[in-house]
Write a protein that binds this DNA or RNA. Sequence first.
DNA 1: CTTGCTTTCCGAAACGTTTCGGGTATAAAA
DNA 2: TTTTATACCCGAAACGTTTCGGAAAGCAAG
Lengths: 338, 338
Amino acid sequence: MATLKDVSRASGFSITTVSRALNGYDDVNKETRDKIMSVAKELGYSPNILARSLVKKQSKTIGFLVTDLKRESVKDNFMFETLCGVSDELSELDYEFVLLSTTTSKQKNKTYGQMCAERQLDGVVIQGLKRDDPYLLEAIESKVPCVLVDIPVEGENTGYVTSNQLDSAKQAVRYLIRLGHRHIAFMNGAPHAYVSTVRYDAYRQVMQENDIDANDAYVLNGDFEETAAKDVALPFLLNHPEVTAIFCASDVMALGVLQATRELGLNVPEDLSIVGFDNILLSQYVSPTLTTVGQRPYEMGRKAAAMVVDIVDGKDVPHEAFVNNQLILRESVTKNRR
Amino acid sequence: MATLKDVSRASGFSITTVSRALNGYDDVNKETRDKIMSVAKELGYSPNILARSLVKKQSKTIGFLVTDLKRESVKDNFMFETLCGVSDELSELDYEFVLLSTTTSKQKNKTYGQMCAERQLDGVVIQGLKRDDPYLLEAIESKVPCVLVDIPVEGENTGYVTSNQLDSAKQAVRYLIRLGHRHIAFMNGAPHAYVSTVRYDAYRQVMQENDIDANDAYVLNGDFEETAAKDVALPFLLNHPEVTAIFCASDVMALGVLQATRELGLNVPEDLSIVGFDNILLSQYVSPTLTTVGQRPYEMGRKAAAMVVDIVDGKDVPHEAFVNNQLILRESVTKNRR
DNA sequence: CTTGCTTTCCGAAACGTTTCGGGTATAAAA
DNA sequence: TTTTATACCCGAAACGTTTCGGAAAGCAAG
């Protein structure tokens, strides 16, 4: 591959001049610039990004750090959609984009700082970390800018983009109550996940503001997994026939509940109303279609990417951004007739 | 961030020795190696990959080139799954992985060669290119190793991994015929896509080997899109009530056909048997569930990644690999009762 | 003629590695 | 004692850029 030196030799100008010509500096004569340009094109020159990054000490690449990238996450298209958003935004901004996948165990081998340093990442957007993952703290304390999706944390070089989690979750529970439901269960996900805690808070607060006593037995744990949710829903529904509605912290778990109802011969929504969270692709294809709180991961990805390069560029921008969720009404909920 | 020079200064050994110690050369004393190791750890040293790549002239990174990475592709989880496969395999092999997304129009701005050279990619795995995309030819002729998924092309530094496309497609059509269907339509995708041509060939060959006359009117074009497929299926089904089965070149188009039947008040599979191709996630959730030819993109991703690094490493490996498809029997097909 | 300003160019150092070709002890062999 | 082998270490060049600090030439002003 042609290098600066080749162009220099072929055009008769020094390496310095060639570099300056190609980079649009103005202390180079129009004629020589044209000459250099044409020679460069002829030789098929294109700059070696590695060398450039080495001396400029910035790589023009952003990392997209994601935990537990595995085949199963296919069901949860959230990650893929934010990835698309990040990718689109970065390519518009002329940044590269490397995918960093990690697991909780891998984080012990290599520190977050090392990971960034090795690759000279200018910034990173992070998705899906757990609250107690070592990388979370490291990322916040690190000098390299990062923005988190769905984990509100502020810091010098840290930003986040999230949705109106609490409000939209409250809206979902209020919706059930307005339809006459009183015995409403809550299917929680991994307790350490940030999103779990706020969805749980929403549930509790709305119940309280409607003077419905909290019943700890109504709070289940499905660990954000379909089968786990089914397994825990089966005995619960059997033992609590008075429950007419359930709010799930994720659609995937809602699907599990749906399976449980089928096995028990219950009808949805007549016997049990279900509302999920995420608006995954499947939610509009299952039968009955799933009422759910829709997130917009693509937009979140775009905003996260945009914010991180703004921080990298030293622009003085707000370090938080919101993308509004939306309650999407479908077939899995109906009025309480009991 | 700590550099080799820092470790050198702090440990009292030369940069050369430090480098050699850290890289496991054997001409360094055990004691000094230990000393250097501990100093390096203390300083949190980790090598600058950029600098290393620059001198070694290989970056230990593989590109994953994908066309038309857009939100819509979410429905077609094929890409995402191969991505997971590639990612998993490469991380096991200690290679980096950058995602390169391109569109047909973007390919005019920057040549494939430039793209590889800039980033010093050691190799690339390519997915979803169209037969007439400029990058395809460039990739084959390029010196940097590449392996294509689902496009059989051989060359010095080129390999591919594909599935037994033709056989499995034939199997699907034979299945319909064995169930007594004679008037079988074919929903084709983008005519320029490689997969389209082979699925079409399979259809024609099986029809012929069963002495069923080819009827050009039975070949539709749904452009691999749900709505396009629906729009073309609607009038077709209306005008050809004798057709009892349809073989679709993709599940997404099969879903379109399914919609069309609903609008026409036809029952699947009683009035029309449908078989798709791809086994996308949705196919097991729609009602009726979709009989389809299942691909295994995750395995293809893994094999592709493994093959490309083998080629990079100069190993003498076969430049083709196969992952067998499988006909998955579900509800959307039944015996012809007419 | 000297001074100073523009315009246009370039040499050399720097970024953080790897690696080639030695060099200097110490120990073993002659 | 001198030679040879071995074990350990290091200087310097190289990879392909960018950029700092000038330098040469031309020209206007004093």
